[in-house]
Design a protein around this nucleic acid. Sequence first.
DNA 1: ATGAAAGCGCTAACAA
DNA 2: TTGTTAGCGCTTTCAT
Lengths: 377, 377
Amino acid sequence: MRSRRPSAIEVARLAGVSQSAVSRAFTPGASISPATRAKVMSAAEQIGYMPNAIARSMITRRTNIIGVVLGNLEYQFYQQALRVLSLRLQEAGRQVLLFTVPPGGDLDALLPQVLQYQVDGVIIGAATLSSDMAAECERRGTPVVLFNRTVPGVPAHSVTSDNYGGARLVATLLVRAGHRRFGFIAGHRDTSTGINRERGFYEGLTALGIDAAAQVVRMDGRYSYDGAREAVLQLLSDGPRPDAIFGANDMMAMGAIDAAREAGLRVPDDLSVIGFDDTPQSAWTAYALTTLRQPIEELVEATVDLILGLHEQPSNRRTIVEVPVLFVERGSARLPRPEEAVAIAGGARSDAAPVPEPAAKPARKAERRRSRGRKVA
Amino acid sequence: MRSRRPSAIEVARLAGVSQSAVSRAFTPGASISPATRAKVMSAAEQIGYMPNAIARSMITRRTNIIGVVLGNLEYQFYQQALRVLSLRLQEAGRQVLLFTVPPGGDLDALLPQVLQYQVDGVIIGAATLSSDMAAECERRGTPVVLFNRTVPGVPAHSVTSDNYGGARLVATLLVRAGHRRFGFIAGHRDTSTGINRERGFYEGLTALGIDAAAQVVRMDGRYSYDGAREAVLQLLSDGPRPDAIFGANDMMAMGAIDAAREAGLRVPDDLSVIGFDDTPQSAWTAYALTTLRQPIEELVEATVDLILGLHEQPSNRRTIVEVPVLFVERGSARLPRPEEAVAIAGGARSDAAPVPEPAAKPARKAERRRSRGRKVA
DNA sequence: ATGAAAGCGCTAACAA
DNA sequence: TTGTTAGCGCTTTCAT
């Protein structure tokens, strides 16, 4: 058996050309005659040559690797996001170097590792980035895009969905449908996502004259099914019952639905429940969860465009992309009559009956309305 | 502002030492005096130097990068697996270069890309590996481990769970509990996982004298919730009803449960349903799915041990690790009395009452039995 | 313990 | 179009 990894020199020798000819043969659009290229290719094939991407990146100063740092890979949303991200980056000819912030771990400790691999850019969908590390990345000329989060005071580019607007829309729709007492299941206080959803919900209620402080019970669902289920079970067992619950993500909303049923309540007749994300499970008939869809495809597309664009042409202007969310009506919440709802949501078309229905094909049948979305440059 | 990425030479100049001293300072256990190291470190800090992992790997001939190729990132099981895999590899000081086989895409087309990055090993949890590509990897000395699959005729190392044994156990338990007519929801015919689960189930039935050909309706669930739900809806609407359904994964089993309920059946009273995987949703009270747990942690651990070990010390002996699965009883299936069930499963301890229960903490409360597991070297 | 020098596999500038 | 040459940033002999 031959030596393990043939180099361009060996190919060159075999093909009877110079080593740079080999390099050119593998460079699309390089100045080389078809005859030479053919010779090279056949020699390469013969000995199983394959260019060394690492060596190439040393001199081109680009690795075509994008670092992706995630901290919440236990959440469906991030799992889906990673799937799409990986697909899109690959289509763009880039590779994904994946880093996971371990539970209790530190993003700032991880980032130097990422940078050592000379990545062409970093996409961060994890905990908070310190402004020190952001500055370090900028100094090195490595573009950074925050995915699904913003960090106050850190001048990094970011892509998020309109968490505030979506949550505010939920508040409006619930009030218009006659709900008066609410439960809000919060995730973590220290994520921009969670904060904005909470703010949107409370401000939406307040804007319609609801005394949020008195009428909303805030629960901590720790972003988990179990956490939410237990909190809601507790809530329903003592004191006056809410007539609607808004979960800061779908998993928690589903925990709320199960809790409600365990407590003998019917959803949505006795209790309306709305979630956030539109994970695949929301469409399952056991839940038929009315929710806000985070448009993963669009979020990812924006993220990829940003990071690749920044590598080509660095910019010190901070870009913030905010993508509108979509209201997906299934069966878990009582809502205003369609005409009114449409007026509330700002005129998007509604093409479904208002009756709850099993949602096998929610994408086609359900009523949807877009939140405002904006792009801030 | 200074030049973007300081090199060891610049550090050396600033510290008044040679460039190799800088290298040594950053190499644990290298022969260098504390004084010199201190000088280097302070100079490095000053100009923000960080070793270039790419350059280093050129000469050490190891990148510390493991290629991970997945094709099924829409399935929870692989999402979870990736999460754990990434964590464990990071703990071992390795990085994950992630590749996704696009829908309809080709693993063999992807693998050369992986190899160009000079990865220290490849973990494959996607479609089928051709023996050509396997040979190519071996020729280059890049170890390959198949995750959750085996490919007949391809001499690659692999780690799987005991799909056959688990499925066979399901058949046994269902028959012993008195079930006689069955539905089996298959995934794809071309995955070793699917094949073995199917074989185990059918052979388990046959071994107990059930005429599988006559008593089992085989459905194609395309590994999806929707596919399974529709297939089961169809099944229940015409012809004699089965009294138990086994889904080749949890998502399909949950689709079956929803279909049964839509058809007005109670689970498990009218219909027993068992799944495979033990995804997080199985524990949700709406389903309380009785299922077989694929021990992700153990699968990943074995995979990581294998791939790292192989890189240190290549072996041409083919290693196949098969990890036992765990039977997790929740509430979706009627089962034999505990004593009998234990005898069937081969003596594993049972510490739960046989009554179905909401499964908030299934790990502690549920009854479990291990399938046989074996390790073949 | 330290520095000088060689070179990992490649691309890019230059000359021919 | 082609070959020659000079590095990319680092580790690793080999002297000292």
